[in-house]
Amino acid sequence: MSPVLLYLSFLLFALGVSVVLTKRNAIVVLLGIELILSAAILNAIHFNQQFPDRMDGQLFALFIIVIAVCEAVVGMSIIIRVYRYYQTAVPDQINELNER
């Protein structure tokens, strides 16, 4: 039962890193960060199963979810602010400080 969940969390983490590295839109980068945090939550709950009389892992997962909410909200507000100023959500097109 256990190796499947470990492999799933590895896969989620690798896919999240790949999304963060390769996508250009800032919103899709946020989606990749959510995937990475989901891998962390899955690992926390899975390792908690080793100690059935404690609940540290599950509560860590709860706090990770709350942190993920804060990150998504602040990131999305920054994206909306940047979009209103530069009329784009693609970070590569914001090159005001670029020397050209």
Binding site: L6, V17, L21, Q49
Partner: peptide
């Protein structure tokens, strides 16, 4: 952007995690 390099890096991370996985008994 850089689809090949990004995918290869993610694959490398996945392989490193698989090779270094701890023994878990649930």
């Amino acid at each position: 952007q850089y689809p090949v390099i990004g995918s290869l890096l993610a694959l490398l991370i996945f392989c490193a995690l698989v090779l270094s996985q701890p023994a878990v008994t649930s």
